[in-house]
């Protein structure tokens, strides 16, 4: 009891003296690889030097940070002199690229020590880089830990809900970011892709039986499209496979800008 008292008085002082600080941390958004990799528009909301970067999710929200859980399938050192690790993190909808160097010692240590395949949880900041006219998303980990398949399934199920909530809200949304998404992604914006991603995730969890009846009534088209997506043995969709060397080179340059 006296413990909590001393903490309460000190924390109350904190809040009074440092009011700006305690809303400071940005939330970690949940999104699948399919959407994270499409969130290529990264911007700052203010001109201040330390203003946070936000990636614009096509579904109309912004993310300064992601929390994700997936399968590490491969870790490569893509650095020139210093070690710079590129990890492929796969979720039911695609592959994300996580890069860790000397400024991410915790993540780098874990990535270099584990034997793929392995489930990992990653808290990471997004950035985007261009290579040959294409924009790619890379993730810079803050913390990376090895987790079990229950944690992974829980994340998938949580991310299904978060993604669906965003997609459901989008059509009637008059939010600044929904408008920004329509403007930024324009013709390439196809939210059905993320509905499909959600369905893939559902199937991954073995939840398809529960939802098949709903879908056959209302989303037959989506399901048909779903069948067309080709998936290789790792569960990686083909579209997500990109020229790795290219990315590695671009990222190795891009990281110095941060």
């Amino acid at each position: 009891m006296s413990e909590s008292n001393s903490k309460s008085s000190s924390s109350s002082t904190d809040t009074e003296n440092n009011d700006s600080g305690w809303h400071g941390r940005q939330v970690a958004k949940r999104a699948f690889a399919a959407e994270i990799n499409d969130a290529t528009h990264v911007f700052k909301q203010s001109d201040e030097e330390r203003a946070p970067n936000f990636a614009l999710l096509p579904s109309g929200e912004v993310a300064n940070r992601y929390f994700l859980v997936g399968t590490i399938t491969e870790v490569n050192d893509v650095g020139n002199e210093d070690e710079y690790l590129q990890a492929r993190v796969v979720d039911p909808t695609g592959t994300m690229f996580v890069y860790a160097g000397q400024y991410q010692p915790q993540a780098a240590a874990l990535l270099s020590s584990l034997e793929p395949p392995a489930y990992v949880a990653v808290t990471a900041k997004p950035s985007a880089f261009e290579s040959d006219g294409e924009t790619y998303v890379s993730l810079r980990p803050e913390t990376t830990t090895r987790v079990d398949n229950e944690t992974r399934d829980q994340w998938v199920s949580e991310t299904i809900e978060c993604t669906e909530a965003r997609l459901d809200a989008f059509p009637d949304s008059d939010s600044e970011f929904a408008a920004m998404s329509r403007e930024q992604y324009g013709d390439s914006l196809d939210l059905d892709n993320y509905r499909e991603a959600v369905n893939d995730a559902r199937e991954d969890l073995g939840m398809d039986m529960d939802h098949r009846s709903d879908r056959s009534n209302s989303e037959t088209t989506t399901e048909n499209q779903n069948d067309d997506v080709s998936v290789d043995e790792d569960g990686v969709t083909k579209e997500a496979t990109v020229e790795e060397a290219e990315i590695a080179a671009a990222v190795a340059n891009a990281r110095f800008e941060e």
């Binding site: 903490k7 309460s8 904190d14 859980v69 949880a121 808290t123 830990t145 987790v147």
Partner: peptide, 13 residues
């Protein structure tokens, strides 16, 4: 870190 928890406690500040 990275795991899901059921957490119970009191909010102070």
């Amino acid at each position: 870190v990275g795991r899901y928890y059921q957490v119970e406690g009191s909010i102070v500040g």
